[in-house]
């Protein structure tokens, strides 16, 4: 039974994580300049977080201030902020060609 509950919780958490991650990715996809993280952050983050906060607040009000709903919404809200933080702080991936890799491994020594 406990295993089932843990499995259920993990499943729900994963789904929530995926939904939030996808919603943030959408902000990058719709941007004209998706590689410029600062631009995406400046232009899309304010509206994203205001709408996200509005949804959380609506859920809390609809549940008539139920404490479990408040906890859930707080966790989800913080999770969204953490994911944004992770994405913005993440260093851009550097793609190298095979030639460049070979050069790095076998530099032309004098």
């Amino acid at each position: 039974m406990i295993l089932l509950i843990i499995f259920g919780l993990v499943f729900i958490c994963s789904i929530i994580f995926v939904i939030i991650r996808l919603s943030i990715s959408c902000m990058f996809w719709i941007s004209k300049n998706p590689k410029d993280k600062q631009h995406v952050f400046k232009v899309y983050f304010p509206y994203y977080i205001i709408i996200f906060f509005g949804l959380c607040l609506t859920a809390i009000i609809t549940s008539k201030g139920d404490s479990s709903m408040i906890c859930f919404c707080t966790v989800v809200y913080l999770l969204a902020l953490i994911i944004w933080r992770y994405i913005i702080k993440q260093k851009p991936r550097v793609y190298r060609t095979i030639k460049e890799n070979n050069e790095l491994q076998n530099p032309n020594l004098p």
Binding site: Q38, F41, F45, P46, I49, I50, L81, R85, I88
Partner: peptide
């Protein structure tokens, strides 16, 4: 109103990623 709402919701978070236009660095 928009700025007030945004500051109240995520002011702290935004300031952590404030972008300096002159140095082009976070």
């Amino acid at each position: 109103w928009l700025n007030g709402l945004y500051t109240t919701i995520a002011g702290l978070f935004h300031r952590n990623f404030s972008f300096n236009e002159t140095t082009q660095k976070v």
